[in-house]
């Protein structure tokens, strides 16, 4: 009896999902019929004027840190929230080591690759407005360093090198710094998170010190994301 019930339930679920898929297919079909590729004036404006208005060559960066910087504040808050939740849910008691012992090759390679990762992460952050990259990507690369340490040497070693409290502090400083940099716009008489509009000196486009506040915002987001992801990873692995 229960088996039939289960079958029926499964059929029911499949029917529901197929209905959803058909519904979405109708959406795509309708959109395809509409054929309105012309309605992209916002992005066309960004493409034609973005470099001049913000000073950043990388348009994704200019959207993230200038036109829609408020979204970035929101997502930085989301990471901070997740890190706070994880450090709350995980007891501070004892950290567990991973059982595996690696060969010397793994340890040496890890040691060897850490400086390169650090350079790559910092480069991605600082050249975020000039080349592919930016605070988020750079932060993720930076967070790989503590994650690698955790995987190869265990949580205890990783946390003795980079204290959780320090990481939390770095994360909070990144978030506060982002808001303070945003408030610079208010101080100079423009709006919150203003950069291109507040004339912080777009500089010569293509140089490292250009695009006003964008590099500094990148740094803040970079250290924030790096620290946040490291906290999240270590918290998840600590749980026995």
């Amino acid at each position: 009896m229960s088996k039939i019930n289960e079958r029926l339930k499964k059929l029911h679920t499949i029917a529901l999902v197929v209905a959803l898929a058909v519904f979405l297919l109708v959406v795509v079909y309708e959109i395809h019929n509409l054929d309105n590729n012309s309605k992209r004036y916002l992005s066309e404006h960004y493409i034609s004027e973005g470099v001049r208005e913000t000073g950043a060559i990388n348009l994704v960066t200019s959207v993230l840190y200038d036109y829609r910087a408020f979204d970035t504040l929101g997502e930085a808050t989301v990471i901070l929230t997740a890190a706070a939740i994880l450090s709350l849910l995980v007891p501070v008691s004892k950290a567990t080591m991973l059982g595996t012992k690696f060969s010397i090759i793994v340890y040496q390679t890890t040691k060897f690759s850490i400086p390169f990762l650090a350079v790559l992460g910092v480069h991605l952050i600082f050249f975020g407005h000039l080349s592919p990259g930016g605070g988020f990507v750079g932060g993720v690369v930076l967070s790989i360093i503590p994650i690698l340490l955790t995987i190869t040497y265990g949580v205890e070693f990783s946390e003795s090198k980079l204290k959780p409290a320090k990481k939390k502090l770095v994360e909070d400083i990144g978030a506060i710094g982002f808001i303070l940099l945003g408030l610079l716009g208010v101080v100079t008489g423009s709006n919150f998170l203003a950069n291109g509009q507040a004339n912080f000196g777009p500089g010569n486009t293509g140089e490292l010190i250009s695009a006003g506040l964008i590099p500094y915002l990148n740094v803040m987001i970079g250290i924030k994301v790096g620290a946040g992801l490291a906290i999240i990873f270590n918290s998840l692995i600590k749980e026995k």
Binding site: R40, L42, S43, Y46, I47, G50, L59, V60, S62, V63, L64, R68, D71, T72, G74, E75, V78, I79, F136, V225
Partner: peptide, 15 residues
């Protein structure tokens, strides 16, 4: 040049 806005939105969505 492809549209930069969806890429920025995608980054937000990933995070």
């Amino acid at each position: 040049v492809v549209d930069p806005i969806p890429q920025a939105l995608a980054l937000t969505t990933i995070i």
